[in-house]
Simulated scan of single mutants.
Amino acid sequence: MSAIRGPLSDEARTVTGKALQGMVVDLTDLSLVAKQLHWNVIGRSFRSVHLQLDQVVDIARRYTDEAAERAVAIGVNPDGQVGTIAGQSKIQAVEPGFIQDEKVIRAMTDILADVITRMRERMDTTEQPDPVTQDLVIQVIRELEMQHWMFQAMV
């Protein structure tokens, strides 16, 4: 039993906790994949792609922490351990080594689209049990959709 118990019912805490854990997994892995691409991008658009990837990393890391702290605030223990992230992530791994900028742009566009789809599902599932968490999900979606648009515009 958690020593921290928020105002949510057990059912609402379960639904919301699952959404928040999914956010922790998606955002942690998104930051790792974006950093991997950041280190290995090459090509004519190197600098702009390199810098844009750092923005994705910053957003993902900031909101990972917010999602994890929201989970704790409602009495749910987040799990950001590497084994959990590796076992639960739905983000496709990227190829090792140097990657041409155009491939990086396409990969990030696809990855962001997938993460956004899952975030929108979490937005829907948290609407009734916890509008506060839904607000956090909406903030994440807003930031990720802007990044998605920016990567699409580079193609």
Score class of each variant (00 low, 15 high):
residue 45 S to F: 05
residue 91 I to H: 06
residue 30 L to D: 11
residue 30 L to Q: 10
residue 59 I to C: 05
residue 41 V to C: 09
residue 59 I to V: 15
residue 140 V to K: 01
residue 20 L to H: 10
residue 33 V to M: 08
residue 36 Q to E: 14
residue 80 G to N: 06
residue 61 R to W: 04
residue 109 T to E: 14
residue 144 L to G: 11
residue 111 I to L: 13
residue 137 V to G: 14
residue 136 L to Y: 11
residue 29 D to L: 00
residue 40 N to F: 02
residue 39 W to K: 07
residue 28 T to Q: 10
residue 82 V to Y: 12
residue 86 A to R: 13
residue 118 R to H: 05
residue 18 K to E: 15
residue 48 S to A: 03
residue 144 L to Y: 13
residue 43 G to F: 06
residue 66 E to G: 01
residue 115 V to N: 07
residue 108 M to S: 12
residue 25 V to Y: 07
residue 22 G to N: 11
residue 79 D to H: 07
residue 133 T to G: 04
residue 127 E to R: 07
residue 18 K to V: 04
residue 109 T to Y: 11
residue 110 D to W: 01
residue 73 A to L: 03
residue 139 Q to V: 08
residue 127 E to G: 00
residue 15 V to K: 10
residue 57 V to D: 13
residue 62 R to S: 09
residue 135 D to A: 01
residue 8 L to N: 12
residue 25 V to F: 05
residue 38 H to Q: 10
residue 102 E to N: 11
residue 125 T to K: 02
residue 63 Y to L: 00
residue 106 R to L: 02
residue 56 V to E: 08
residue 50 H to G: 04
residue 108 M to E: 14
residue 116 I to W: 07
residue 141 I to C: 11
residue 129 P to R: 04
residue 20 L to V: 10
residue 1 M to A: 13
residue 130 D to C: 01
residue 78 P to F: 06
residue 116 I to S: 09
residue 124 D to R: 02
residue 107 A to S: 12
residue 72 V to F: 09
residue 39 W to G: 08
residue 140 V to M: 05
residue 41 V to R: 08
residue 85 I to F: 10
residue 13 R to E: 10
residue 94 V to L: 01
residue 91 I to D: 09
residue 46 F to G: 09
residue 82 V to A: 14
residue 53 L to V: 12
residue 10 D to F: 00
residue 51 L to G: 04
residue 123 M to L: 05
residue 96 P to E: 15
residue 21 Q to K: 03
residue 7 P to C: 00
residue 124 D to I: 05
residue 5 R to I: 15
residue 6 G to K: 03
residue 47 R to H: 14
residue 142 R to I: 06
residue 35 K to S: 02
residue 92 Q to R: 05
residue 82 V to L: 07
residue 2 S to D: 12
residue 57 V to R: 13
residue 62 R to I: 00
residue 141 I to T: 15
residue 17 G to K: 04
residue 89 S to M: 02
residue 18 K to N: 13
residue 83 G to D: 14
residue 26 D to Y: 03
residue 17 G to C: 02
residue 33 V to Q: 11
residue 73 A to M: 06
residue 41 V to H: 09
residue 148 H to K: 06
residue 106 R to F: 01
residue 38 H to D: 11
residue 67 A to N: 10
residue 96 P to D: 15
residue 134 Q to L: 00
residue 113 A to L: 03
residue 85 I to V: 15
residue 102 E to L: 00
residue 87 G to W: 06
residue 29 D to E: 15
residue 124 D to T: 10
